[in-house]
Design a protein around this nucleic acid. Structure first.
Lengths: 168, 168
DNA sequence: ATAAACTTTCAAAAATTCTTGGAAGTTTAT
DNA sequence: ATAAACTTCCAAGAATTTTTGAAAGTTTAT
């Protein structure tokens, strides 16, 4: 395969995969396209390359920027906005994890915490079981939160090396 | 709040949260209901409690079983099937991670691996960049895979304690 | 062999999410 | 102040996913 075929297949495949990760096909495609592009691209170029509407591309670019996966750039004498991807894989991972934590973990954490705090005294086995499960869930979520904080602060290369050492 | 209110709120809230985790509202509700239930429940009881159709409950129970989050049980002199949840939070986490890895990570890993293997020699800067990104992505995915293998094999309580020690 | 009890299937309907494209809004140059 | 270049918004339409419910299938008891 030549490099252009590789590029197109990656972009298409990433789009398909995206839908099983809870992000839209076009968001995954736009991200893939910019990841593989060494240089910044304009909305026009992205629309053209992926055959997507202006509105869609605009929306998706803003969302990727809010995830810190993309940066805006301008060029002197050109009033268009250009977009360039964060290319450091470790940074990409950190930002995706941060975002998913914010959207997927924290609301669950909050829900469990509140319900646990409101659970009045209860005595029969079924009631004790419910309080037990909420308690277990709560401490599990808190542990995972602590863990994720630590991992996100870890140095790029230190993580795997250390864990390997630890567990081998 | 009394315990019944807690139970209902947890089940409803978990259903809502589920939709932001890529699982259907009813799957999350059924799982939440059985998590909080000390004892096994029949399809009928679940339908009744959650006001869901028989077909939906049946489908969702089978999927939860395929994730190893639920077990089937039978009772002597009763031909219905009953369902009981895995109640160990660590086990639940292990099984969800295993399933998501299978569905979300492995296909991406395969895609990148194949494209990287097929990338013919290329010389200009843009082409080199594409090969570099695919290579980076590939090694990152492999490292995360190694890491997840290790974590999934870790003992329930060893993990956090060790990581804390490591990083403090 | 039949009927009752229970489970599974699946096509259609409902709900949700994604995409489009035109209109409105903004900024910059003259 | 106006026009041109560009960005953002948003309501309608398209696509996808989820849910329903009735029919078909299976198992067990007699």
């Amino acid at each position: 395969m030549n490099i252009e075929e590789i590029r197109q297949q990656f972009v298409q495949a990433w789009g398909v995969l995206g839908t099983s990760w809870g992000i839209s096909r076009s968001m995954a495609q736009v991200h893939a396209l910019l990841l593989l592009s060494k240089n910044e691209m304009s909305t026009e170029e992205i629309m053209e390359d992926l055959k997507l509407s202006r509105g869609n591309v605009n929306m998706v670019l803003r969302e990727l920027i809010s995830w810190n996966l993309l940066y805006k750039q301008t060029k002197p004498g050109d009033r268009k906005e250009y977009f360039i991807a964060e290319h450091d894989i470790w940074q990409i991972a950190v930002r995706i994890i941060t975002e998913r934590k914010k959207r997927e973990i924290m609301p669950a954490r909050q829900t469990v915490k509140v319900l646990l705090a409101n659970a009045s005294d209860a005595n029969d086995a079924e009631q004790k079981h419910i309080k037990q499960m909420l308690g277990d869930l709560n401490s599990f979520i808190e542990q995972m939160d602590t863990l994720s904080e630590l991992l996100l602060k870890a140095e790029k290369n230190a993580l795997l090396k250390n864990v390997l050492k630890l567990m081998s």
